[in-house]
Write a protein that binds this DNA or RNA. Structure first.
Lengths: 139, 139
DNA sequence: AAAGGAAAGTGATAATTTGGAACTAACCTG
DNA sequence: CAGGTTAGTTCCAAATTATCACTTTCCTTT
């Protein structure tokens, strides 16, 4: 295995929930993971097109962090960045239950304050079809 | 039902995952929820004593936000703040699956970068016994 | 082989949020 | 009714996020 610098993370405690939040506890990281669940692979510019409109520097920062933590990886590890999409690792795929539980909670509990909220299944459909072009193919 | 100002939240999209993160997507909110799952009720100063050491201004801010979103509430709605603990609402209790999934993921996937991480069950034991005093009683 | 274009980032700077510490207000309690 | 506790606020410095222009690389086209 090649060298990977794991973690400049400052773990706040030994608690697994706190530690998960040390990595994933922000508004963007799990959205990157969500996109990869839905589309399997995703290029840099495709991430930028998701409806939440992540800033490019934050995207670059999160992709680096998630890669260093082994949650995502390049589809083609040692080929140039251009059109070299990202995908979930085994570890990343294991986040499925977290995303499903969060999405389900939000759909049933936030509707009053956020009337336009849609179900996970609808969200998946939307994200998939909005960009059903190349990256869904090279999976 | 009395007036509650729901949400000054800016929803980034209609996606339930993104919307959940609009509220809970930070390093602290779910830790407050975690504490309440473990201890059932929790006072302001007890939250401050949790091992991650949240700053008091952020705590106040998050308690206000989670209350306004109906995730937590005062145990004794119309009595003075002093010793008036917080607890989960029905909505808040439904976050259990999110926390469990996150904790499980972290325990199995972060151990390499965070060797001291402990299991959820151990974390629960620790938090419970570290402050098994009053607030676990008035539940 | 050079020109052009698009994709993947970087960098500069402004706005917002966080974190730490001290401070205040309200209330029990003796 | 004095003193200590508890639940916050306020202030300010530091870190993070957002906006947006810029650079670089490499792929295609001629």
């Amino acid at each position: 295995m090649a060298k990977k610098k794991k973690s400049e993370i400052e773990w706040r405690s030994e608690c697994p929930i706190a530690s998960g939040l040390d990595i994933l506890g922000d508004k963007w990281s799990l959205l990157i993971v969500r996109d990869l669940f839905i589309c399997r692979t995703r290029t840099y510019s495709e991430f930028c097109e998701s409806p939440e409109k992540i800033a490019t520097n934050i995207l670059a920062n999160r992709l680096k962090l998630l890669t260093s933590m082994g949650v995502i990886e390049r589809v083609d590890v040692d080929r140039p960045a251009r059109n070299n999409a990202y995908r979930l690792t085994k570890s990343g795929k294991e986040l499925r239950k977290v995303l499903e539980a969060l999405g389900e909670w939000s759909y049933t509990n936030l509707r009053e304050s956020h009337p336009d909220i849609i179900s996970i299944d609808t969200a998946i459909e939307l994200l998939k079809t909005s960009r059903a072009t190349k990256s869904s193919l090279n999976a």
